[in-house]
Design a protein around this nucleic acid. Structure first.
Lengths: 113, 113
DNA sequence: ATTCCTATATTGACTTTCGATATTTCATTT
DNA sequence: AAATGAAATATCGAAAGTCAATATAGGAAT
């Protein structure tokens, strides 16, 4: 019955919010452009699918970390431009600290002899 | 209503397998002792609950990465001592590489100006 | 025997991620 | 003007992982 094939690697594992927030801190962007930017910055390591991206954006918007506004590109395509809110900036620093804490802890486990 | 309160932080997020495999590489241990060791090594950052630990151990055993054997402690308590298998050792190195790749990618995103 | 503690196990809820599919809208082509 | 194509957003269902809560089993201690 070949249930849907699972994907090779689950690289994201909860780092998606941090990735998105940080990307928007650098520059306001619309959905697809966020994924493009992340793919580019990480040289393809993080390749966020639409099915992960948009639910995440809605989640973050609902939390009040980001705000989306419908606009147009120069090519007259309608897009939802997302910006980081003040609350989002604050939350980003929390997520950053948490990430550093995880890396530190993992390093301790990995480098103990 | 009053659905179960969600927990403060979801620190593990998919790093659990690596934590367990690496801990067993250092020393064969039984379930609870693995969690204790990880909590100790990470100074409390990773505090693995039983509801996460045992399913993970069964998962890893089923994959063939670890092997459990019923034994006794010096205090005559029955425990399931886990050891890392050869396949587990190989898989551990894969997980390590993957972790490093994630850290690298995240660093690129976090440190771009 | 009852109580307590250690160790293992399981269940149910919730969340996240992903593949697949759908919809809208504009630009391009015929 | 109709058809086609592409970009951008959206949603659904399945799979997996984590956690709190609960359960069970056996030995130790009183």
């Amino acid at each position: 019955m070949a249930g849907t094939r699972r994907q090779k690697t689950d690289l994201l594992r909860g780092t998606l919010d941090l990735l998105i927030l940080r990307t928007l801190e650098l520059q306001a962007l619309h959905g697809i452009a966020i994924a493009d930017r992340i793919r580019q910055l990480t040289h393809g390591t993080f390749d966020i699918q639409a099915g992960s991206l948009f639910p995440a954006l809605h989640r973050l918007e609902q939390e009040g970390w980001i705000a989306g506004e419908w606009t147009m590109t120069e090519q007259r395509r309608r897009i939802k431009a997302y910006t980081l809110t003040a609350a989002g900036r604050k939350h980003l620093s929390v997520e950053k600290r948490q990430w550093e804490r995880i890396v530190e802890a993992m390093t301790q486990v990995l480098e103990t002899s």
